[in-house]
Design a protein around this nucleic acid. Structure first.
Length: 738
DNA sequence: CTCCGTATCT
DNA sequence: CAGATACGGA
């Protein structure tokens, strides 16, 4: 301890020791490296040492030995066993007050974290500036000799000394104040009040002329003083949207009201108002689509092209060819399925690391990066196209150094090792997200279709890996299975490898689709696709809609057309489950994917319905004949009569399939949320080798980073780079810290 | 009073 | 545009 003490007291020598606790090895490594590099950014720091530990237990044991050497503890919130706050509490009990910083992609943990005494809360993904803050904070305490004897009250209102930068983000602070709080009701006077603003209320009952009271309400009463701060905006991440759509599908569009949706979604931080607002937008979108029909498509496509690649410069020029159409509801979900990634990782934090510096935003696309032309638009394949990034491909090819870690990288690695196709394909899409993507409303088909507009379905693959030696790409793919094979992998009861096997030997990936929609004309198109058939044809055939045809005709080889088409189709399917994915599939089960194995799941949805899982595509129940819900009579929201409902049923698995999927998904979610998320126990699913539960990054906020400039996409980082290349770090900081 | 849908604001 | 709010109504 002598050493420790002297070390500790060398005020002149700013030596900082930070212990980082995170079960995500990738994040841990990156975080550690970056912190260590921090010293180069601050001349006042002579040395900064990072002690990286993988969990709370290790953190405690380490603390016992080096308590005097540790100035600050930075811990992830979600970790197996003891979470970050529990760790904090334990540390306090055993070692007294230690400055602890809690990180989490789940910003909803902020309040709890602060309440429990965390010095501050840093939302993941960590930004370069956060790292700086961390060591600055450590430095502050170090200088004040408070490392160990820090006074209690670490609440947000204390510690003014804490670097301001680490203070709560305005929005977060806001959340603290307003979270779950009953909505402020300025019209406490309710009815009578209405009279006060009666001038704004038309007597005819029409609200058309209604003008809302000036919000400032300055002219009103003193009560205005209690004007609550505005609630922070929530972002409808892909995850949330998936959930939202699932809820709607499950409940039925006609019966889906905010409260029900909210209940189904079961996302604690969401309020009914949030859902209501979203629902309104969603309805508007549907209406718009229904009214404009395919014409809408052109609109979309045009717009999409422009908005989709705001950061095109990050991509290989090659990809510009994809020019997807749009992105939207479904589409984006592919981009951001962090929740599919390792659970506790918070998602999103740890991402694929590639050797390239190409962004690989598999799971976590900053909101602003998201190719979402419209949140309320249904999935369109377009976005998927955007994903195939060179780096992505590289990843799949390169044998990662990541071993069987819990990192979400694992699936990928596995894919490589086993040469699994599905995974590879997944990459083409959005890496992991693709894998799981189907679980939700992500339509595999669209993904595929989107891949290579002018290429046959199979070609898609080629296009995806065009950057790479074709061989490898293909190699990874099942020999006789085209990219579509991934679908094959859908087989619920088969491990990833078998996925393919499960596929009908001679069945093309498309076929899968075909089977799904066998009864659908449009669908059959797919089935009919021949491996050498250009994507467009496929699409063209698929398009029952004149509008779509236009598209196709307009740009025979253009992605845009096809994309659109799909998009429209999806869009139309949207309401119904069409998007239901082929659940199986991806949802599936490659053990290593950490995806719950469907066959083992006895799922019941939020509504208590138990469903059986489909085990084979061929058995996949498709009830095309199912009449649209009699919704009409009760529907509060109805689509225009001309709304092409038939299309809605294209992929509808409603009776069985739909519900099943929904339920499955839901179950998984609940499982993770309840078991995995809170306690991190292995969910009730066959979670083979991996210890980490999949999914769930319930954290919808993980991708809410709006400050793009500051955003560090971990996917850009490579452990090696971090470890060996200072210049890389510099570039990183230079790019992100200015 | 709660919740919904729509208008409107930010 | 995406979300939050206001507010009449049920």
């Amino acid at each position: 301890m002598a050493f420790a003490q002297s070390f500790y007291n060398q005020s002149s020598v700013l030596r900082i020791n930070v212990m980082v606790v995170d079960d995500d090895p990738v994040f841990l490594q990156i975080m550690s490296r970056m912190l260590e590099k921090s010293k180069y950014r601050d001349p006042s720091i002579m040395e900064i040492t990072v002690i990286a530990v993988k969990d709370s237990t290790e953190a405690l044991s380490t603390l016992k030995i080096q308590r005097n050497n540790i100035d600050l503890i930075v811990t992830d919130y979600y970790m197996p066993g003891m979470n970050g706050l529990q760790l904090k509490t334990q540390i306090t009990q055993e070692f007294g007050n230690f400055p602890v910083i809690v990180m989490s992609s789940d910003t909803n943990k902020e309040e709890e974290s602060l309440t429990c005494g965390a010095m501050c809360f840093i939302p993941k993904p960590i930004k370069a500036t956060d790292l700086t803050k961390i060591y600055q904070l450590a430095l502050t305490y170090k200088r004040n000799g408070k490392s160990i004897s820090r006074t209690e009250q670490n609440h947000k209102d204390t510690d003014v000394s804490i670097p301001q930068q680490i203070q709560l983000l305005p929005e977060q602070a806001n959340v603290l104040k307003t979270k779950k709080k009953k909505k402020f009701s300025p019209r406490s006077d309710s009815i009578t009040a209405s009279s006060s603003n009666g001038s704004c209320v038309s007597t005819d009952g029409s609200r058309k002329n209604r003008k809302r009271k000036s919000n400032g309400g300055s002219g009103d009463n003193v009560a205005s003083l209690s004007q609550p701060s505005k609630k922070s905006k929530i972002t409808w991440s892909d995850y949330l949207q998936d959930l939202f759509l699932q809820a709607i599908r499950h409940i039925g569009l006609d019966k889906a009201v905010p409260k029900k949706i909210l209940e189904f979604m079961n996302v604690d931080y969401l309020t009914r108002e949030n859902v209501a607002s979203h629902l309104q937008k969603y309805r508007q979108f549907l209406r718009k689509v229904a009214e404009q029909g395919m014409c809408y498509s052109s609109m979309i496509s045009g717009r999409s092209t422009d908005s989709i690649y705001p950061y095109a410069h990050f991509r290989e020029p090659y990809y510009n060819n994809y020019t997807p159409s749009i992105t939207s509801w479904y589409d984006t979900s592919l981009n951001n399925r962090s929740f599919y990634s390792k659970t506790g990782h918070g998602l999103g934090q740890s991402r694929l690391l590639s050797n390239t510096r190409e962004p690989v935003r598999f799971n976590q696309m900053p909101y602003s990066y998201m190719n979402r032309s419209s949140t309320y638009e249904p999935h369109r394949i377009g976005s998927n196209l955007a994903m195939p990034i060179k780096s992505n491909l590289n990843i799949s090819v390169q044998p990662s150094q990541n071993e069987g870690r819990g990192s979400f990288l694992e699936p990928i690695v596995m894919a490589n090792k086993t040469g699994q196709t599905s995974q590879v394909l997944g990459f083409g899409q959005h890496g992991l997200s693709a894998i799981n993507g189907n679980t939700f409303n992500n339509n595999t088909m669209s993904s595929y279709g989107s891949l290579s507009p002018n290429q046959p379905g199979m070609s898609s693959h080629g296009s995806l890996t065009s950057i790479q030696p074709r061989t490898s790409s293909h190699g990874s793919l099942t020999p006789n299975q085209p990219g579509l094979s991934s679908h094959g992998s859908l087989t619920p009861n088969q491990p990833g490898s078998s996925s393919h096997g499960s596929l009908a030997p001679n069945q093309h990936g498309m076929r899968s689709h075909g089977s799904l929609t066998s009864n659908q004309p449009e669908i059959s198109s797919y089935g009919g696709l021949t491996s050498n058939q250009p994507g467009l044809n496929t699409y063209g055939s698929v398009t029952p809609n004149p509008g779509l045809n236009n598209y196709g005709s307009s740009t025979p080889n253009q992605t845009g057309g096809s994309s659109l088409l799909y998009g429209m189709q999806l869009l139309l399917n949207n309401e119904n489950t069409a998007n239901n994915p082929q659940p199986h599939a991806n949802a599936t089960t490659h053990q290593n994917l950490e995806i719950p194995q469907l066959e083992n799941l006895n799922l019941s949805d939020a509504l208590g319905n138990t469903n059986e899982l489909p085990c084979d595509l061929s058995n996949f129940p498709v009830n095309h004949n199912k009449p649209q819900e009699e919704a009409d009579s009760t529907t509060k929201f109805e689509l225009p009569a001309n709304f092409p409902t038939e299309l809605n049923q294209i992929f509808s698995l409603e009776e069985n399939g739909d519900g099943t999927f929904v339920n499955i998904n839901q179950t998984c979610i609940y499982d993770f949320v309840v078991k995995g998320h809170s306690s991190r126990e292995t969910p009730n699913i066959s979670a083979p080798t991996e210890t980490n539960s999949p999914i769930l990054n319930m954290n919808p906020n993980h991708d809410q980073e709006q400050d793009v400039p500051d955003f560090i996409d971990w996917s850009l980082l490579d452990p090696q780079d971090l470890a060996d290349e200072y210049d890389f770090m510099d570039s990183l900081f230079n790019n992100d810290m200015n």
